[in-house]
Amino acid sequence: MPSLLLQNRPATLWLPEQASTLAPSHDGLFYFIYWLCVVSFVGLMATMTYFVVRYRRRSPDQRTSPLSGSLRLEIVWSIIPAIFLAIVFAWGLKGFVQYQSVPSNAIDIRVVGYKWFWEYRYANGTTLTNDLIVPVNTPVRLIMSSEATSADDPAVLHSFFVPAFRVKRDVLPYRYTVMWFEATQTGEFDVFCTEYCGAGHSKMIGRVIVVEQDEYEDALAPQPWDENVETLAQFGERTFQSNGCTACHSIDGSRMVGPSMAGLYGASRPITGEGQVTADENYLRESIVNPGARIVESYPNAMPTFAGRLTDQQIDGIIAYIQSLQ
């Protein structure tokens, strides 16, 4: 995975790499609690083990101590944990305030959760899917909400989680939630949906791609097909994978939320309410830009339009890719 290839501040057994300004302070508290727990646990278990070995029953009439309490000891072992827990609370609150307080110079990006992919809307009109591109060393504010994919399939909760940044926030319909981060290194970092949202929940995975500040504007422009590097079908395959299509469409014939792409090109399919359709270029294009127009029988009207989100060349690529899946 890309996130494992980074060189600095590498992942440990317990935590992924640190890639945001919030991560080091989070990890400081994490390891404070961690060592608090390790020391307490080892102490407790060592005492328990010592008692079990030392006071195990050697004879049936072994005498025992009448001890049934000690106010002094009980006060001590109430106050000491209370002090440590108070420290943990205050430290956690401090970190939470930092997580809640968006810097005033942050750039805004709209994030929309669909069943089941992420869409990012930039101020310059660019729309990206699943891969969020942000500049390094710049505070970014995400203004997030959940939207319905179609009139028949209402919006549900999602949650936007970037482990390398140590940030997460639930994403709700008809309401905005806000989250911010400042990436401290370039690279690619996993994005997970962490609020259960149905069949495609585990495929609602994206990446944050952090680029240098001077490359940011260029990175937002869609990358055109380069025929010297790959075929149109290969370009289409990448487009298919990076736009969340795989959450609902299989390429091996198995049934998911939407029809499988395997053997689809040129096939004749029954349409809900109006006979048959042949899956030619025009039908495939229509299904991408106006998916509710002709739904294959027994499938739900659950796909959002990709009109304006994909370039014509990307649509051509996807059609070529589907054509290759015979």
Partner: peptide, 17 residues
């Protein structure tokens, strides 16, 4: 003991769900 990580606000943000 592992509940302490979840009761603490900053660490819960990372560990929740």
């Amino acid at each position: 003991l592992t509940g302490i990580f979840l009761g603490s606000l900053a660490t819960d943000v990372h560990l929740h769900d």
